[in-house]
Design a protein around this nucleic acid. Structure first.
Lengths: 230, 230
DNA sequence: GTCTATACAGTGATAGAC
DNA sequence: GTCTATCACTGTATAGAC
């Protein structure tokens, strides 16, 4: 057994270090969120009891109820913490889209505004983005109803905004066609972040989604052409 | 506990029924494969012990070892049973691709040859195709190393054949570009079969991958245009 | 060849002694 | 807290019955 109990390491303390940007070094709330995100991603939502979770985080069992009401409230907060900044970034980039000389076509700009924040977050291993991506995938196959609800709450509004923008960009397409093609945009984004190993393997290591720049470029090029079909 | 033991029901027998196409009504081997596929899809590979599995199937514990050597051998046989006919169908359709008046362009034919058998199998709920699709997804997130191995063994060769065919079809593209676009083809196919609910939800129910004909048509149109980009 | 009963060695979890 | 005996359960191996 490699468990080794992992005694709660004393927090780094404030010795000589200037005040960080964050309001506090690592509060109970943030600590729970970070540990829960990792554990849920590793063992699934039902695979982690609140007892093991709070023990691992070095906090009291009851603090989950205090900060998040329930276990579902906890995972909802995890989603919120990751999705809110990503959605804001998507909408910021969407608002910045504009036609102009020397700029890519509007369609390419919109697609990039949608995928760039997601791919950047997943690529941010240190910041926990990769963990959250994995958590979403694990949850989807473990508790699809809860996953469906959380994804709807966090992604529906932004997705609708992009569907509208894409339809304004390609007005000759039917609403259904736009939806189908948006679905294939989601496909490319999802599969690229969730299973980068398959293309790496098939290409003998030559194509690697870990190279964010190349991945975004290839994805935008392919999907934009798909949207322009017929 | 709802186990209920399910005493091995006496096989239906051949009473008055003409000899079926299959060699036997339902042998131990087939029974194990079918039950295991369903249980693994529901509870994961590690979530099902050989004891509960054999009890559910109404067979002896040791018969798994006899027929499949090990638990890994069992899941390998499950993959083989589902993948072999699908791969044969893919290669048969690929061989049938040809240019000609009144036929779709070669590129569209190749893409359809790749996706049609997969989507048909997933749509075949009664035949267990949907269960196998779910099993693959669950396994991928539970035991990625085993999943990677099984997917490589069962899909690598056929995929390479299609990559070659696609490159012959679009010789001006680099090998890397072909691989990236094949990756997006896999994305569209994977996401369409694994999460048909998302587009159904976003489109207010108007777009539904359960309509196989429409799904294949939209997928082929989008992906073919993507392959022709630039 | 097919199937069965049973034995075996390894696992994580747990409860009680210290 | 820390060690240890025990337990329930796992996948696998084998000897023998049809």
């Amino acid at each position: 057994m490699t468990l080794a109990v992992r005694k709660r390491i004393a927090p780094p303390g404030r010795r000589g270090r200037p005040a960080a940007v964050e309001p506090e070094e690592e509060g109970t709330r943030e600590r729970i969120l970070t540990v829960a995100e990792r554990l849920f991603a590793e063992r699934g939502f039902n695979g982690v009891s609140l007892r093991t979770l709070t023990a691992e985080a070095g906090v009291n069992l009851a603090s989950v109820g205090y900060h998040f009401d329930s276990k579902e409230g906890l995972i909802a907060a995890i989603f919120d913490r990751r999705c809110r900044p990503m959605m804001q970034e998507r909408l910021r980039l969407l608002a910045a889209c504009a036609e102009g000389p020397g700029r890519p076509p509007m369609l390419e700009q919109i697609i990039e505004a949608f995928v760039l924040p997601a791919i950047s977050q997943t690529a941010d291993v240190a910041g926990g983005g990769a963990t959250f991506t994995r958590l979403r995938a694990v949850l989807r196959h473990e508790n699809s109803e809860l996953a469906r609800k959380l994804i709807a709450e966090n992604f529906d509004e932004t997705s609708a905004r992009f569907v509208d923008a894409l339809h304004r960009c390609l007005p000759r397409l039917s609403r259904d066609a736009i939806h189908w093609r948006f679905h294939f945009l989601l496909s490319a984004l999802y599969y690229t972040t969730i299973d980068p190993g398959r293309i790496r393997h098939l290409s003998g290591g030559r194509c690697d989604p870990a190279d964010t720049k190349v991945a975004v470029r290839e994805l935008v090029r392919f999907v934009a052409a798909g949207f322009r079909a017929d």
